[in-house]
Amino acid sequence: MPELRELTYAEALREGLRQLMEEDERVFLIGEDIGVYGGAFGVTAGLIEQFGAERVIDTPISEAGIAGACIGAALTGMRPIGEIQFMDFVTLSMEQLVLQAAKVRFMFGGKASVPMVLRMPGGSGTGAAAQHSESLENWFVHVPGLKVVMPSTPYDAKGLLRASVQDNNPVIFVEHKLLYKTKGHVPEEPYIVPLSQSKVVREGAHLTVVATSIMVNRALQAAEELAKEGIELEVIDPRTLKPLDDAPIIESVKKTGRALVVHEAVEMGGFGGEIVARIAASEAFDYLEAPIRRLAGLDIPIPYNRELEYHAVPQVESIVREARKLVKGEY
């Protein structure tokens, strides 16, 4: 049997972008340093050579302009894919995204749509400090009209990118800086991972761990650790935060009776609260054996100091610790 082909998360995205652009002339890329430089994290490397500067457009430092250009192009029939170099700077695009992209379809009674994708890497762990390390995905979850996708594996990255580009709604596509170099199986032929399908990435009987983005990897590592103690974690990756597929989560909690939600974004007002509320309000409530817990970023800007940065967000050890406490009945 031939060995399964492996790509990094960045390579998977690049292959996905290339295939989409080859198939469909309406697809183009726009962002800062995505052309000759190949993007801050190298995702678009080589694409300008293949498709030219008309379809791989370098812009000035102008996030509102990138988002606005995507919206305008999408309204006129293109399928733009914008890149925000660091998720932090999407703050400059908020008016365009929240008031325009998200609303147009509704305010024009469905006569116009904004089929755009805006890619952006979030997350800490690179020593890039408070203005280059944020996880702002829940800002967009709170806006009706936007979809929010957050892949954790190379396979999902490529498949969800395709689903996002084909979707007729604006999609916020949140990548993670530390995931770009992670490897995994990625088929060469184009494929779709449908939006709004949560995935049970590891089955286990004792605790449901709902994790997003890089926290899926950390939860899986924690699960390996705990398996040695006989504690079996069931790890679920929502993959699409909005619209959220909560059924597998609720089913899982009915089975395990315990739930832990892990994400990198600040706990206060974070997406974990939504997951917790969905569980608490569901039929899974009657199966709970312990309070539902969250493990998420501290309520501080990400520190520059590497040691402090490390402790500002959940790590494998803290997931192990928290999961063990939940299963051992300390809560």
């Binding site: 009657d286 199966y287 709970l288 054996e289 312990a290 009945g329």
Partner: peptide
């Protein structure tokens, strides 16, 4: 816990009579 309450209700068991092994004697 909610799970204990559901089970007790389904089986007609008085929770006050069940020794709890959870934190602070909570019935699991």
């Amino acid at each position: 816990t909610p799970a204990a309450r559901r089970l007790a209700a389904e089986h007609g068991i008085d929770l006050a009579q069940v020794p709890g092994t959870g934190p602070a004697g909570r019935v699991q």
